[in-house]
Design a protein around this nucleic acid. Sequence first.
DNA 1: CTGGAAATCGTGCCCGTTCACGGAAAAGTA
DNA 2: TACTTTTCCGTGAACGGGCACGATTTCCAG
Lengths: 356, 356
Amino acid sequence: METSVMEENKNITIIDVARRAGVSKGTVDRVLHNRGEVSAKSAEKVRQAIRDLDYEPNLYASLLATRKNHVIACLLPRSVKGEYWDKLRNGFVQGGEAVSNLGAEVKIFEYDQYDPESFAAVCSQVLASEPAGVVLPPLFKNDTLLFTEKLHKAGVPYVYVDSRLEDEHYLAYFGMPTYRSGYLCAYLLTERCQDVPKVAVIRITRDKTRRSDPTIDRRAGFSDYMQEMFPDSEIINVFINPNEPDEIAQVLDVFFAEHPDVRFVVMFNSRIHLVAPYLQAHPVEGRRVIGFDDLDLNMEALSSGAVTVLIAQHTEAQSSKAVATLVDYVVLHKEPGKRDNYMHMDILTSLNQENY
Amino acid sequence: METSVMEENKNITIIDVARRAGVSKGTVDRVLHNRGEVSAKSAEKVRQAIRDLDYEPNLYASLLATRKNHVIACLLPRSVKGEYWDKLRNGFVQGGEAVSNLGAEVKIFEYDQYDPESFAAVCSQVLASEPAGVVLPPLFKNDTLLFTEKLHKAGVPYVYVDSRLEDEHYLAYFGMPTYRSGYLCAYLLTERCQDVPKVAVIRITRDKTRRSDPTIDRRAGFSDYMQEMFPDSEIINVFINPNEPDEIAQVLDVFFAEHPDVRFVVMFNSRIHLVAPYLQAHPVEGRRVIGFDDLDLNMEALSSGAVTVLIAQHTEAQSSKAVATLVDYVVLHKEPGKRDNYMHMDILTSLNQENY
DNA sequence: CTGGAAATCGTGCCCGTTCACGGAAAAGTA
DNA sequence: TACTTTTCCGTGAACGGGCACGATTTCCAG
């Protein structure tokens, strides 16, 4: 009828432990935070006493006594408001607020996503600031590995978001299963499609630097699904120069004039909103348009009907969880539940985009 | 390049305030918790000093000093493992764990969902236990109103989950927009449907007590959509006795024999898993089956292909957020951001059900 | 003006940890 | 043995706020 959640209040203090181990609380404290200056013998007695009494330190007392502020450094590319990285940034800030009463603080370090140098510069800044933990999306693979190696040596835990490298020491990862998101995209696009689908893949991208790029996996997932289900389907890439936004309408005009029967449109990055105005201005019965990520502009495109479906992952949740996990680890010494956390892929339509 | 999130560490203690107000910290403490025994004059001086210094009490110190445990009472119907109410219950427990280091504790009170008496009995238990806050789904309207009125008089804040009554004093509400979920369901069911859809609505329900029932709104949303989009559509109710589980197959056999052209199947409560085995055993090309809620059994039905889409709302998130909000309010004195929190409706398919 | 009740307020201990400081014991040196 | 250097460990003062207790002041009747 009535159940209690939470261990009964143990009144076991550090002094009880000390008494049982026949030492003073100072000594107990030293072994608790293994900062040496304790003989092996009494260290063992203390550990035994802790085990015997099932002692766990009082969080408040501890937090009160060490009024140290753990700072969590969050690195990410500078970005325009409303863009993907900006959402991620918001998540960092939110996460920071959520844990602010645990004596943790979030510091955000931004760099130029097209300039590895600026990333490296920021990295040394972060190292110099001696953070309690670091969160970052591994944009530049090599530079990131160099950086995280240093972090590891300095004993600073770090968490990947967005995508993930395969090094050994990261504490956790939060992100989307990119391959599967492409697969899902193809399914949603072609579900109940009667004939052989023709798909336009719109590609607006800067010339690639040597960055890790999640859209590659996504594209692969998409292709694989299409291969499996519609071997005869046609997938046509439409390239648009990002530096010439006016070009968009022209290119699409040309394309759809040539391919009037293309009913399926996708984009694998978060920029579907760039083509939304054109699509809305040129409506086609039965056309399906799918994009990624819950940017504000994308959400608008969704509610306006220009976009049919958005595959999203609660960008903010991703980064705020990363911060929370790190803080839990650093101040509460709580190991993360899972190391690799693949976020759920949300399917957004105009009818369920509210309250997202 | 570098931004700090969080106000700088204010070292202003209660003593600073006391000094500035020309009183002792005891007095400051009294006005802080307005527990009287302070003259109007010095109370005002203290308040002024607090404002001047922008003082806010140190959470840890406070928590350490009062090792009182705020208990949050969570009421809900007893239920089988894996059922809807059990998920809600899990959310309560999770929420309790999440805030356990804020000196809060969750106590769960269960009653018989078909017996208002048992609910009333539990209510008085809760009242007697003098909780710091209460979370409950308002199953029995009248009894709930009676109860919450008493809570309000006793100064105990309460939060609704699942559904909501229109009384004045609830602190917050967390739940699904039921009408819209029915609307969404109809959309997902009939999207890209070429001809006039015929829908089987399967209804397995106990004889109704005077409970508030979210499936009514859901049904309404569904009907409205169908009316709008397919005025000629046919919606056929299929009633099944919940007390005769073996009956399910028979009834469905009869039904589908009579209506071989029905391709659309929905259920508005969380029990779609009950018919999943039958549907899987009798596959039909192009059939679409939609159910509600992320019960484990429903998820299995989804991955097996018996169910096409599940409309869910992260049941656990709903209840754990309710707990978190209440605790924030009670121990941190933080007002809830929004009063009515409609949870996002998640669209689950076999391809995105993982990591949910 | 006085005694006593009531209103108001200050003091001091407590909560459980952290950590600097310095003392005692052990080990090393001459 | 005596003296120095390490190693180890105990002590006690914070940390900031809650609250019991009792002291002081105010108020009012007699």
